[in-house]
Write a protein that binds this DNA or RNA. Structure first.
Lengths: 198, 198, 198, 198
DNA sequence: GATGAATGAGTTTTCATTCAT
DNA sequence: CATGAATGAAAACTCATTCAT
């Protein structure tokens, strides 16, 4: 009886084995040869499981983001106040630690690829993830309202909060020495003056 | 004695002649050979006036943006209410007309290049332009306050308005069928509830 | 399963097929395109077997020199007297035949490349080959002493003999109509007055 | 009355002003633009005084070598014993000081150019200079014989001394970490055993 | 005599993808 | 199922030299 390999499983296994590789060399410098070597299979085999290079990069990035999200939601769970939970969303763009900067630059590279191609799959993936994060934010705000930390009006600011987040991301990426932290703190304090129950 | 040319003028003239070319083929596909042909000069001559390919692309984009700004400021001057003036800032990201979409996609490609290289000059240029636009926005808001259209508190929202703008730009670029208009209107109406003198 | 090729063999086969090409066009004018065409493969395939252009040129030159050495050692074996064996070493720089001049000019071009780059591999290769030839010369002299053709003191002249050889090479290469033969004969006769057992 | 410029004088003046430039950037990287700038004239003017790039490089190198020779003959004059005078000839190839290494590498680059082109003028220049140095060496040896430092037989070794010198030059240039000093000392001691009057 | 603007040929190397085995 | 050998298009940049002024 031959070993039955589930195509999807192997696809994922290949991508999984290349998560550190992508971090190391970056999207643009990643070659199929490297991927094949890291996964311990032949170059041709890659094409049994992936349409093309974009496809595999996409899969690897997915895993990256999933990993990131796991950490992210753990952090949020450990956090009590609504304000701090919101801050968790912004750590990614605020934190200047080497570790986070690496992730941030990885995401920058990813965005560069998204913006230069016109890959529908990328756009859809981004849409879904943004929706997902938006929902998370909404839950947190709603919970804050329920816990009497926030005024009911707070729910009207969920969207703009997420858009503001995107704005900080783009500014940190495209301008010199942008101080996202300062901007965030101004904004969040301003906002909480309006929505917080003191 | 040889013909003496004004280097700066010729530099600009070359760039100017390639503004439509850049629009047509995009940044990534633009070749020096094309530029030289369009400008009606030899390839080598390009390098008498520009350091390298980045340098010439940068110059062409500058002209693009200058052109855009001229239109933009004309629109603002023709506009009366502060709210409408603010809306002018957002036309770029909101408007779905073919004309504007072309510009928007051009800017998208530019951003893609900025994010993938680490060109200090690009980052600095962006910083300066963002500062400049921020100042414009501030003037408009201040004027609105002076004209008793807005409450003094409005001045505290200038920064976040610009960041919000960036956020919309990134969302329109990186997600599928993003409705920047809706987001903007929600936001601006929400905001004006807080800062408008009715 | 794909065709498995012996990388080393194919590498050598490619280089081998280009030995006449290198002779024909010279090092500086040799292009990868020519090499690929001559080897009957694609340009890209070259790079499956060689690091870069230097690498392939180096390999071709190796074959050249190996070929030359084979002839050279055959000649020495066919020769009886020590004096004649020594002369064999100098044929390369003395002989004005068209055939040898072609080789000599090839070596000249090779040296030109060695002197203009700072390629460690080249320098080391030269060192090794010089050592090797020095050892050969030493064997010949030692044998001459053993055969009572030469005085024991002859062994003290091995180094200078090789250096003298280099000197003739450089002189033939860098000056006009240099008569290496005359210089060699003067030298060898002078020397044999000192070291020969008559 | 217009300023009469002697063509040859200006030619020399231009070359003279570029002596340090050549040292700085080397032969291969030297551009006509640099030469024109250093000489304070236009690029086109260069061609009023020189045939082509080779011509001007040649002229600059001439001056270099003249300068070197001046130092060299001063050193020889200050030296007493014949053995030391001979050693002066070999300082160039033996000395590992930074200063001399710079000169040596300059000469290496020059030789590389000589070997890669087939410029008759270069070859002739080299022939003449080698003749000239040979004559100098002969004078020194003859003088040594006259001063009863050397046996009359010494005159038979003048040629080989010069060829040996060339050999050391080529070895230092084309092999790794060559110890020219050791080779020279062995040789000169060996030689003096034969030709010195003790 | 002087100038400097204009020129354009020429070559290495990478790497996603295919397909014969 | 798996493989890896083979492919070939594609583009920036330099710089000696000329010649119109």
């Amino acid at each position: 009886m031959p070993k039955i390999v589930n195509k999807d499983e192997k696809r994922r296994a290949i991508a999984l084995s290349c998560v550190p590789l992508l971090e190391e060399v970056g999207i643009k410098k990643l070659t199929i040869a490297q991927v094949a070597k890291k996964a311990g299979i032949g170059k041709g085999t890659i094409y049994e499981y992936f349409e093309n290079k974009d496809d595999i990069i996409f899969e690897i990035i997915n895993i990256h983001i999933e990993n990131h999200d796991v950490e992210f939601f753990n952090k949020i769970k450990e956090t009590n106040s609504t304000k701090e939970k919101i801050a968790c969303f912004f750590y990614f763009v605020i934190d200047k630690s080497e570790e986070n900067t690496k992730h941030f630059n990885g995401y920058k590279e990813y965005l560069s690829v998204v913006l230069s191609n016109d890959n529908e799959a990328y756009l859809e993936f981004n849409s879904n993830r943004d929706c997902f994060l938006l929902d998370e934010m909404r839950s947190i705000i709603d919970e804050g309202i329920k816990k009497k930390e926030l005024l009911p009006i707070a729910s009207k600011f969920v969207d703009s909060l997420m858009i503001f987040h995107k704005g900080l991301v783009l500014l940190r990426m495209s301008t010199k020495d942008y101080d996202a932290k300062e901007s965030f703190e101004d904004y969040i304090n301003n906002l909480f003056d309006l929505i917080e129950i003191k």
